[in-house]
Computed example of a mutant assay.
Amino acid sequence: MGDNKDDRLIVWFDIDNTLYSASSKISQAMGERIHAYFVSLGFSHEEASELHLRYYTQYGLALRGLTRHHDVDPLDFDRKCDGALPLEEMIKPNPRLRKLFQDIDRTKVRVWALTNAYKLHAERVLRILQLDDLVDGLVYCDYAEPNFSCKPEPEYYVKALEKAGVTDPSKCYFVDDNRGNVQAAMRLGWGHCVHFSEHGLEIVEGGRVKQIDNENLAGPKVIGDDNVQVITDLEQLRHVWPEIFKKEI
Rank of each mutant, 00 (worst) to 15 (best):
M186S: 10
C81P: 07
L87M: 08
D225G: 05
V204S: 09
D176M: 07
C141P: 00
L129G: 01
E155K: 14
E248L: 14
P86C: 08
W112V: 07
I104Q: 00
Q229P: 10
V111A: 08
K221H: 14
V39C: 01
T57N: 06
R208T: 15
K159T: 09
I231V: 13
N116T: 04
P93C: 09
V230M: 03
Y118P: 13
D16I: 00
V125H: 03
Y143T: 08
L126A: 06
K210H: 06
K163F: 11
E162D: 13
V166W: 06
G65W: 03
E155D: 15
V125W: 05
Y56H: 10
E202Y: 12
R33V: 10
I10H: 00
P152C: 04
I128H: 08
F13R: 00
A218L: 15
E205L: 13
I91D: 03
E89R: 06
K210P: 07
D233I: 07
F43V: 08
E205R: 14
D103P: 07
D233M: 11
P86R: 04
R79H: 12
N216M: 15
L126Y: 04
L87E: 04
D177E: 10
S21C: 00
V11A: 03
E202R: 14
F77H: 10
Q183R: 13
L138K: 03
N214D: 15
D213L: 06
F13A: 07
Y55M: 07
S197I: 14
N181G: 02
D168S: 00
S24P: 12
K92H: 12
P220K: 08
F196Y: 04
A122M: 02
V240W: 05
K171C: 01
F77Q: 03
G189D: 05
S49N: 10
L217Y: 13
M90L: 10
F148V: 09
Q229R: 13
E50N: 13
V158T: 12
L41P: 00
V166C: 02
N216H: 14
M186R: 07
E46M: 11
H192I: 03
V230I: 11
V166S: 05
I249N: 15
D225L: 11
W190L: 01
Y37H: 04
K25N: 15
L63E: 00
A164H: 03
D16M: 06
A160F: 03
L85P: 04
I212D: 12
R79E: 14
N94M: 12
R124W: 01
E46F: 06
M1F: 13
V125F: 10
E153A: 13
Q28A: 09
H239S: 14
L85D: 07
A218K: 15
H45E: 15
R110M: 08
N216G: 14
P220I: 10
H69G: 11
Y37V: 04
I223G: 08
P146D: 02
P169K: 05
L114W: 08
I15N: 05
Y156K: 00
E50T: 11
K163M: 14
W112H: 12
C141W: 02
D73R: 02
N181V: 05
V182E: 03
T232E: 03
K246Q: 10
S49Q: 07
T167I: 06
Y20Q: 07
P220W: 00
E215T: 15
R64W: 08
